[in-house]
Design a protein around this nucleic acid. Structure first.
Lengths: 145, 145
DNA sequence: ATATAATCAGATAATATTGTCTTAAATTAC
DNA sequence: GTAATTTAAGACAATATTATCTGATTATAT
């Protein structure tokens, strides 16, 4: 099972990082993405279309067409991608699923989880994917670039 | 959607805390649990049966039967419940779902997520549910006790 | 003993998520 | 302008998760 994010969202993030590792503006086909990342072609196609509608990607049809980032990698955070696919419920809801859990009526981990949630939020928003791919390049991340 | 845990697991945790708030050894029926927590009877019945097989609960058939904790609330951690239902994948797998992600080949949040994961692990293991229900009682948690 | 109230177990159904297939539309290259 | 290649879109299929139904089993209480 996936952890914080849906499978869809995981694929979206993987694809975005794959694109971010490519030279700026270069078009990359779905086939390229899904072959290298070993993730399902048609399913990912839908996800990329969705991200395109939401302006996080740009697409180009026809031979030598494909996808590229919708804006500079310096202006994209992981959170933007996650929010577009899964929403932000993972930063709002009770960890145990209690519908009425809040600070007046807290579950047993309410405060602890709040701190952790802030850390997660920071992790997803404080760096752009540009900054992140930089460190990935150094480490020859996953052999995909 | 649920956050870290499956719906099943959320129900398990809710039920365990509900039981932990009852006087030690008292039997509580599925009906009582699911009515108060407003969660689905038959589905939860299965989950409680599962937890019973795994010795985290004890069950008693017949009139005035029901469920009670399988051992002292002082000896139960949230992690034990989660592990029994969902396993521990959420503390092991890559946040982005990269199958080969490890310290030699890290994803872009590998280290940050590792720290957060440790905090989560601590949250789930460092206190017994007995200690946790104590603070819940003080706060009249969810009006269920 | 008998009726009752509860869990146990297995089948089934409903829903959500993930994944596939087919055809259309657009763009490029020749 | 024609063929080839790529995304777009919608229907469909498979799987996983969540939820329900029915009957059996067990134990209690009278």
């Amino acid at each position: 099972m996936s952890i914080l994010f849906s499978r869809q969202c995981e694929y979206a993030l993987q694809a975005i990082f794959y694109l971010a590792l490519k030279p700026h503006g270069e078009l990359t086909s779905i086939r390229d993405i899904t072959d290298k990342l070993e993730i399902p072609y048609h399913f990912v196609a839908k996800i990329l279309q969705d991200l395109t509608r939401k302006k996080l990607l740009r697409s180009h049809k026809g031979p030598s067409g494909g996808f590229s980032l919708g804006k500079s990698a310096k202006d994209i955070t992981i959170f933007q991608i996650v929010e577009a696919i899964d929403g932000d419920g993972f930063l709002k809801n009770c960890l145990f699923g209690f519908p009425k859990c809040d600070s007046d009526n807290p579950c047993s981990v309410h405060e602890q989880w709040e701190k952790i949630r802030e850390d997660i939020n920071k992790m997803l928003t404080s760096k752009s994917i540009y900054e992140m791919t930089n460190s990935m390049k150094k480490l020859q991340y996953n052999g995909i670039s």
